[in-house]
Every structure is written in structure tokens, then in C-alpha cells.
Amino acid sequence: MFRRSFAGLAAAALFALAAPAQAADDFIIVQSTTSTQNSGLFDDLLPKFQAKTGIEVRVVAVGTGQAIKNAANGDGDVLFVHAKPAEEKFVADGDGVVRYDVMYNDFVIVGPADDPAGVAGSSDVTAALTTIAQAQAPFASRGDDSGTHKAELRLWKAAGVDAPAASGDWYRETGSGMGATLNAGTAMGAYIMTDRATWIAFGNKGDYQIAVQGDERMFNQYGIILVNPETHPGVKAELGQAFVDWVVSPEGQDAIAAYKVDGQQLFFPNAGE
């Protein structure tokens, strides 16, 4: 009796394994970042693309650093991230075909309402960062090699502050995604640099407000790249290219511009400019 039920269990397991995940094969995998996913942009954009082409887009949303590594392993058809130098290296290494500008948004530095470093209202990011460092006010960094983390490190460098040297003191590296860093940073009263899209859509703001914004050095450019089918034979080049083409087409660009949360436009299309 035991053996019979045992065989039944094994058969059930094999059946579960064998059951196809999805019947259709018309899908691509896009390696992208948490900001595009958490802001809700993909939920708005992808159904429009699928309605037009019938191609299903499956998004893996991780930090830019991890997304690039995954794509460089051939685990994705399209890369859609925001770290231009790293993206250009990805293409130069032969992992990507061509990089296109897609859109931009900007970074902001958010802080608690009592503003311990006194930087609220500033539009000079390097001056603000210097003030935060001098005041030794807590600052929560992604610390995860993401696009936002890379941009933040560039700004510290421009300010002439070696913030990572204070890691564990007032400079706190969470080593996590944007949302997790916002949750942790707001809980510890720290300043946090975040992309505006994630901030507007974030649901746990507490008493936090945007402290620093409007500096053109906080410009956050997104790019899209077809993973190179010559170096990665598994890439669905035709379907992936269709998605790239649509995103940079007037139709895709209009769809990006039309996406709003709380009446605010989150991403500004700038393909081909």
C-alpha cells in the first residue's frame, strides 16, 4: 500500500514538473531595474506593447549592476537600465548590439521634515552633500552597485567627500534595493538619494520630503539594448528588437510620457535626441 501511494506521489510530482509554464513561446525576458518596475511604468507600458504585437514581455527587476551581469550571461533578450558608462561597456564587450537613449527622470535627495543638516530647498547637490558630511547627518546609501548607487558615488566624488570611508558611521550602506533602502533610511532618519519615480510611487514616506532637487547633475538617463545574439545564441533577436524598436518609436515614447502617478509625469522620453 505504501509503495502504491509512493508511486502516485512521484507521478504527481512529474506531472507538476512537466506541466508547461506557458503555452505560448512568444515572450522575451527584459533585464531591468527596480525603479521602472516599482514606479508602475512597466505595468502601464507592457500591455500596450503586447496588444500591438502579441509579444509578452517578462521583466526581471533587479539592480542595474545585477541586470547587466545577468544579461552578460545571456539570461535575457533585452537590457533596460540606467547607468550609461556601464551600458556602453556592455556593448563594447560584445554583449549588446546597440544602446539607445529611452527616457530620463531625475534623482532627488529626500530627508526628514526636521532637516538635521539644513539642506532643504537646495538645488546644488554637491554643496548639499558637503553640508550633510560636515554635519555628519545620517545618509543611507544603496551600496549595491546599482545605477542609483553609481550615480550617488559620482556625486560624492564631485563634492570631494570620501563618504564610503565613513561607512558604518553616519554613512550607511544598506546593500539593498531602492525600496528597502527607503524603508530603512526613513526609519533611521537618514538622507537618501532616490530616483523621483520610485519616490513618488513609494507608499511609506512618513514625514519625509524632498530636500534637494533640480540640479542637472542629478539627471538619470535610461537606455535600452538588445542582447547580442551573436555572442549569446539563445537570444530571441527578432522579438527583442521589436520591443526595442517600439520603446524608442513615437508610439512607445508617447506611452512613456503619458504615464502619470498622482498627476505627475514620472519619465520624460528623449529617444533620438
Binding site: T34, R58, V59, F202
Partner: peptide, 24 residues
């Protein structure tokens, strides 16, 4: 799994995602 919507999203990855969106 990659936490892909409608493909590999399960309870625990949904909880992680909503936490990261601040929807505690």
C-alpha cells in the same frame, strides 16, 4: 524565478516586492 508578474510571482516574492514599494 525572477519574480516575473503572471509567470513566477509567488506569495513570498510578492510580499518582498510590496515591502520594497513601501506598501507595508
Amino acid at each position: 524565478g525572477g519574480n516575473i508578474n503572471h509567470v513566477t510571482r509567488v506569495m513570498t516574492t510578492t510580499i518582498a516586492l510590496e515591502t520594497s514599494k513601501g506598501n507595508l
